[in-house]
Amino acid sequence: MLMPIFNILIFPGLLFLFFFSLAAEFFDRKLGARLQNRVGPPWFQPLADFIKLLGKEDIIPEEADNRVFKLMPVFALTSVSCAFFYIPLWGKNALYSFNGDVVVVLYLLTVPILTYFLGGWYSRSVFSMIGAVRSLTQLFAYEVPLFMTILAAALLADTWSLSKMAAFYSAHPGYWVFNILGFVIAQITLLGKLEKVPFDIPEAETEIVAGSFTEYSGRLLALFRLSINIEMVVGISLLAAVFMPWWLDAGPIAGFIIYVLKVAALISLVSLLRSLFARLRLDQMINLCWRVFAPLAFLQVIINLILKGALFK
């Protein structure tokens, strides 16, 4: 009885996730700074930011819907944290798993975007509302290729459970090669989910201040920021579990180190990509996703279907 509670609250649950996501933010920021030839923040900066925000006053706009405005950060945090438990991190088994958890994880990762939308929309400020609508418009563009690439991997493994997928790919070493195209697309579209350059359109500072979060402050903003960080960790863990199913039999400690290295490698990619490009415009972003990434993701699905037919007659 005690073990699940420990797992959920402490390790590898909420407390671990909290510190791990702050570490991830630090790594991303530091690496981004070094890529830009800057010094970057000290190691405790994300934690210091979080604590500082907790100590600040919450200001809720008079016109905003009080309840929705306050609830949305909590929703965002809860949903991303839940998703974490279904992803196999080190080893082949997630904390919890059932057949169909791939879909659940993907949807749990979509919930935060909906909370950004609702939080922004009910802030009732022009900038928040534009940001909210942009979040949602963008969601429809990147979600399709992202889902397709992950489902393509699931298709090859012939299961809807992430843990079973991990088991399949470690039983068939080398099969991950077939998913490389999907991995590239997933990594790029993940930037859209995380709202990072070149897809940071919903919070484009120079256009709409901070988008959905314009009116947020204090603890509520801290929760939102935390959930964005956790979303980054969860999204990247998902990519690592699906597309990098390597050395899953290494045992707990070595496995943990390998997991951290995988996450670090993927965060490095995120930092590199976000330093490399200018922000796209919403119409360009949608064109790119629908005209380039969606067909490529579809190609990945077809490749995997054919492979499945050829390999497992």
Partner: peptide, 16 residues
Amino acid sequence: PGAMIRQLLSSLTKKP
């Protein structure tokens, strides 16, 4: 895309 990639990666080894 990504014309600046070389410059970016080389800054990793340079002093800030």
